[in-house]
Design a protein around this nucleic acid. Structure first.
Lengths: 342, 342
DNA sequence: CTGAAAGCGCTAACAT
DNA sequence: ATGTTAGCGCTTTCAG
């Protein structure tokens, strides 16, 4: 393994100059730079990551913390973050809580080992102690989707999304509208968009429409669970809503499949709207609100790296809203019964 | 930031003893160990990752290289690998090629920085030069699903899977069987289970059944693309196959949705079988061959960590086949036409 | 069992 | 612009 000393010797300069030439920090004559780079490539020199991290205190490595890698929103956001980090020459260390299985481990042991320049925390709910612990460890953090007091965050306007989706259905003439969303309280762990449910409830109330307990479903955000819940919801013709607003596209897909299995025609007998912009929605004809998950990832990285730039500390930990886009497809339309009775 | 010297001082021992007590390497008196541990916790001491990595040459960090994080197989495998690594106290550095966008960057710059104890490479096709480069860097590698000559690998028996799926359809009485699978040649980058296509072709040939070019579809493994291809395939009633074997569940789902949109009844007018064990298959009633993606991830980690144990070098780089399980659901049955004509 | 001392490989003052 | 010198914080021979 060739070290920087070998490179320096071969180039006929000191290790310090070799380091400067290779890193671009400090000024080096063109001649020396040339000699160093060619010596380096001749020896196949690759700098030791740990040695340089130890010396500089920075590791060009950021951690991404999330609850489930294999769910669409998280893996798509992760892909975006990965791309932005690659482009900037950073490594990405992944911490997948797998629900809350590894939550304590990650927060306690891993995150604090001074090996990360920063952290992107997705849908993570921290208690006061944890916030204090991380802030006092001096690790820059950007939170996505989760409310992290005192930290920079980016998130969607969930009540706004819930309201927009619901109002879309109302404007089509629906009055019997159900919602499938996240849990009201997910312990102290993750806060998954109960904001969307709030928006739904507000829009219904504003329109003077009834909220029924039976139409307010709590799911774990998986397609399968939403399928089961929707099937139960839709089974009874008398109690059946004419529209469903699902808090994610995967759940909306579950509802769509349940409706199909019950022989209900979409959108005549049931309208369905989701949230995400999942590619699958194209094929399903799913009306949705795209939340640009990939861009959330790249944006989070951009903000984190901005914090890491030398002399960029004093920025206020701002809370940034990300853009969304309404995409109308064929899964939503005016309710059939109403059209008929006209 | 308390360092190990501070701990040592507080405990009234030397840094060397403190290090031994904390790491468990070398022998330390019970008294000293006690003094050190309590001093450490009193100071909230957390060892510096880079310093210890530099000194020991090991980083408790493994890299996972894969082509697409946000595809089911990869993210599920990743979840398994993450769990196994967490349990063993290792960090996971993620390298997502995003197709081949970051392939060169990762292989050239990132992997060789001596910061990883080992690498798990999923569906990665390396050329000779690259294999040599990595082996000579001395990084232990476990390959999953990709043929990596000279390296330890674990993979499914893809021709066997293709054969089993096809024979299932044949045994039900199908003779007009189409296949949707990966590309024949994906450049020098990834080799995605063309083995399944081989198994399909062999099974058809063995049964004396015709192979038609129009029934051998090449897809990019996404639901949307498979949907489009299946729709085209199924549009012409005269040329229509009675069964489709898709090389993944997501593609099978695409075929299912295409069939539905064409008004074809499943399984009467079309049987569909996939590969994966995707959760979505439960709701779709999809017959499939489960390849236990999550376990592939944990198994890969187990084998890699075994290589990393001190004094475990001399193991042959074995090629290990992983188990699969056939799951029959409602998407496959005897062809309708045949049943009628009996 | 314990301490002293010499690094791991690179970088950042500080001189020149 | 370049070289010299001191570390970064921990681990590990080597003595004792």
């Amino acid at each position: 393994m060739a070290g920087i000393k070998d490179v320096a010797r071969l180039a006929g300069v000191s290790p310090a100059t070799a380091s400067r030439a290779l890193s671009g920090n400090g000024s080096v004559s063109a001649r020396a730079r040339q000699a160093v780079t060619s010596a380096a490539s001749e020896l196949g020199f690759i700098g030791s990551y740990h040695a340089s991290s130890l010396a500089t205190g920075r590791s060009r490595n950021v951690g991404v913390v999330l609850p489930y890698v294999n769910r669409w929103y998280f893996s798509t956001l992760l892909e975006g973050a990965n791309a932005a980090l690659m482009d900037a020459g950073y490594d990405l260390t992944l911490y997948d809580f797998q629900g809350d299985r590894y939550r304590e481990t990650v927060l306690g042991d891993f995150l604090l080992r001074k090996r990360l320049d920063g952290v992107i925390a997705v849908s993570l709910q921290l208690n006061e102690h944890e916030v204090k612990q991380i802030l006092s460890a001096g690790i820059p953090v950007v939170g996505v989707g989760g409310p992290l007091p005192g930290m920079a965050t980016i998130r969607t306007d969930d009540p706004g999304i819930g309201r927009q989706a619901t109002e879309h259905l109302i404007s089509l003439g629906h009055t019997r509208i159900a919602h499938i969303g996240g849990e009201h309280e997910v312990g102290r762990y993750f806060k998954i968009s109960t904001g969307r449910r709030v928006g739904y409830e507000e829009a219904m109330a504003d329109a003077g429409l009834p909220l029924r307990d039976a139409w307010s479903l709590v799911s774990d955000y998986t397609l399968n669970d939403a399928y089961a819940q929707a099937k139960h919801l839709l089974a009874n013709a008398a109690e059946r809503p004419t529209a469903i607003f699902a808090a994610s596209d995967e759940m909306a897909a579950g509802a769509l499949l349940a409706a199909r299995d019950l022989g209900l025609r979409i959108p005549d007998e049931l309208s369905v709207i989701g949230v995400d912009g999942h590619e699958m929605g194209e094929v399903l004809g799913l009306t949705t609100i795209d939340q640009f998950a990939r861009q959330q990832g790249t944006r989070a990285v951009d903000r984190l790296l901005a914090q890491l730039k030398p002399g960029a500390e004093p920025t206020e930990p701002a809370d940034e809203l990300v853009q969304t886009r309404f995409i109308v497809r064929s899964s939503t339309a005016a309710p059939y019964i109403r059209a008929r009775s006209r």
